[in-house]
Structure formats: structure tokens, C-alpha cells
């Protein structure tokens, strides 16, 4: 029991510590693939340190929501991170039904982020908030169709147990898992505002989603938002990597190796995807998400009726 809690605490510290580096690596990959040298992978840490020491500026019409929302965002994301297995270690929070809590606690973060955006009273933030609400709505089913379907198949309702129920022995199950991971990737891209859905490096407020919501934040508030967006990206990365543990043979060393190589591999994939795709038109994004959902449904149908 004691050792498990210790492992849980270590894994959450790992997630919190590595998360900015992961974002840095993605950006580096992207820079290299587009023929630039790019910022060092430590750049997010420098950014965070810089923001930490800045003066906080609040918009004139903002209320207590703007003050509390960045904090709430970070705390809820850390809570969500505490439910994820890193390697073969049991996470800090793990109980029956925690996938529901996981999905809904991210909902809490989203709720307050949207409110904080609308709190500014500017149309730019409003636009971002409306888009976030719309796209999150279509992203939610993807989570339940992937992780949820594994849960329904295995009969387990805890993230740790679900991932450990994956046994790569049956060919159709392997295909099932691979396609699930594709759906989760599409989900991650949406939730973390990456390329085909949102362009993190765009310069025009009208075309942003996530960035425009935190347009009027600065200083410590922006620090919290940035840090939580790094954590969010890494949370989805861990969700994705966890599909690829060979759970039948458990060993700590193997777990660590796969965790590291998986993260690095995922940065490659993200980098490539961001290089070769352009941002979709806002109108087409729900369609893209629905497509991901359709893949999930199809996958589940085919798995269930395979004899």
C-alpha cells in the first residue's frame, strides 16, 4: 500500500516535470521537419519561468472567475493526471469508475476556462469560447467510444485496470486496439488544440481556438494556463502511449523504456502530422470529430461481431 502511493506520487511528479519538455520536443520536431533549427526543447521551461515573474494584468470587466479559473484549471488537470498509469505503476487515484471522473474532471476545467474567456467581455474570447464548447462536445463521444469500449469489453471501469486488461494475443483485438489508438490520437489533437483542428502558432485572433481564450491573460495567470495546457497535452500522450505496453510481461525497466520511447515516438508523429496538414476550416471540424467517432463505432461493431 505504502509503496503504491509512493509510486503514484512519483508518476505524477514525472508527468508534471516532463510535460513542458514534451511540448518542446514536438515544436522542435516540427521546426526540423520544416527546415528550421527551432527553439531548444527546454524552451517551454524558460517561457514558464519568464511568465512566472511577470506582472499580472486583468481585463477591466473581469470578475472573480478570471482570478480563480487559471488555478482551477491547473488543479483539475493535475487531478486528471493523477489517474493515469505511468509505466506499470498504479496511479495515485485509481478506483472503480474513475474513467467517468476523468472525463468529467476535464469537463470542469473546460467549464471554467470557457467562463473565464467570456468574462473578458470581448468578442475574440467569445469566439474562442464558443468554438471550444462546440468542439469539446463532439470530442466527448470519442473518449467513450475508445476507452469506454475497451472498458465495456473487459468489464472494468478503472483506467489502470482497463489498460492492464489489454492482452495482445488475439489478432482482431490487436487491430481493435490500434484503431482505438488512432481515435484517441484524433481526440488528443482536438483537446490539445493541435494542428488539424487549431493552429497554436497562428497570428490571427479570428482563427484561434485555445490561444484566443487566454488572449487577455498575463503573468502568473498565463503561467498557469500554459503549464496546464502542457500537462493536458502530456495527459493525452500518456493515454495514447498506454495502448502500447505489452501488458502481458510486466517489468519496471521495460515500462520505463516504453514510456520514454513512446513519448519520443509520439512527438515524431505529432510533428509529422502538424507539418503535412493544414488547419481545417472551422465549419469542417465537427465533421472531422464525427469521423473519428464513426471509426470508433465501426471498430467496436467489427470487434464485437468477430467470431
Amino acid at each position: 500500500m505504502g509503496i503504491e502511493i509512493l509510486q503514484g506520487i512519483i508518476s505524477i511528479i514525472v508527468i508534471l516535470g516532463v510535460a513542458p519538455m514534451f511540448a518542446g520536443m514536438v515544436n522542435k520536431q516540427k521546426a526540423i521537419l520544416t527546415g528550421r533549427i527551432g527553439a531548444p526543447i527546454w524552451q517551454p521551461y524558460y517561457d514558464l519561468r519568464r511568465l512566472f515573474k511577470k506582472e499580472t494584468i486583468n481585463a477591466a470587466s473581469s470578475s472573480f472567475i478570471s482570478r480563480i479559473s487559471p488555478i482551477l484549471n491547473l488543479v483539475t488537470l493535475i487531478t486528471a493526471a493523477a489517474m493515469l498509469p505511468v509505466g506499470f505503476w498504479k496511479p495515485l487515484i485509481s478506483f472503480n469508475g474513475d474513467i467517468i471522473l476523468f472525463a468529467y474532471i476535464l469537463g470542469l476545467a473546460r467549464f471554467f476556462q470557457i467562463l473565464a474567456a467570456m468574462d473578458i467581455g470581448s468578442s475574440f474570447e467569445g469566439m474562442g469560447a464558443a468554438r471550444e464548447a462546440t468542439f469539446a462536445l463532439f470530442a466527448e463521444p470519442i473518449f467513450f467510444f475508445t476507452i469506454g469500449s475497451i472498458s465495456f469489453i473487459s468489464g472494468l471501469t478503472s483506467l489502470y485496470d482497463i489498460y492492464h486488461s489489454i492482452q495482445l494475443t488475439n489478432i482482431s483485438y490487436e487491430v481493435f486496439i490500434v484503431i482505438c489508438s488512432i481515435s484517441v490520437f484524433m481526440l488528443a489533437v482536438t483537446e490539445c488544440s493541435r494542428m488539424p483542428v487549431d493552429d497554436p502558432n497562428t497570428h490571427l485572433e479570428l482563427t484561434m481556438i485555445h490561444e484566443v481564450m487566454i488572449l487577455d491573460n498575463s503573468g502568473f495567470d498565463l503561467f498557469l494556463y500554459q503549464y496546464s495546457s502542457y500537462i493536458k497535452l502530456f495527459i493525452y500522450a500518456v493515454l495514447e502511449i498506454s495502448f502500447f505496453y505489452p501488458f502481458s510481461k510486466q517489468s519496471y525497466l521495460l515500462g520505463i523504456i516504453i514510456f520514454i520511447s513512446g513519448s519520443v515516438g509520439l512527438t515524431f508523429v505529432l510533428g509529422i502530422v502538424e507539418t503535412i496538414t493544414s488547419r481545417y476550416r472551422m465549419k469542417n471540424i465537427p465533421q472531422y470529430l464525427l469521423f473519428a467517432t464513426a471509426i470508433g463505432i465501426l471498430n467496436l461493431l467489427i470487434y464485437t461481431f468477430t467470431k
Binding site: S172, V175, I179, F291, A294, I295, L298, N299, I302, T306
Partner: peptide, 14 residues
């Protein structure tokens, strides 16, 4: 066959 069917259905969705 199942894998090919999945691909076939994916093309349908597309």
C-alpha cells in the same frame, strides 16, 4: 478479412 473490411468501411466513411 476483418481487417480488410475495416479498411473498406473506413473508405466508406471517407
Amino acid at each position: 478479412e476483418n481487417v480488410l473490411s475495416i479498411l473498406f468501411c473506413l473508405s466508406l466513411f471517407y
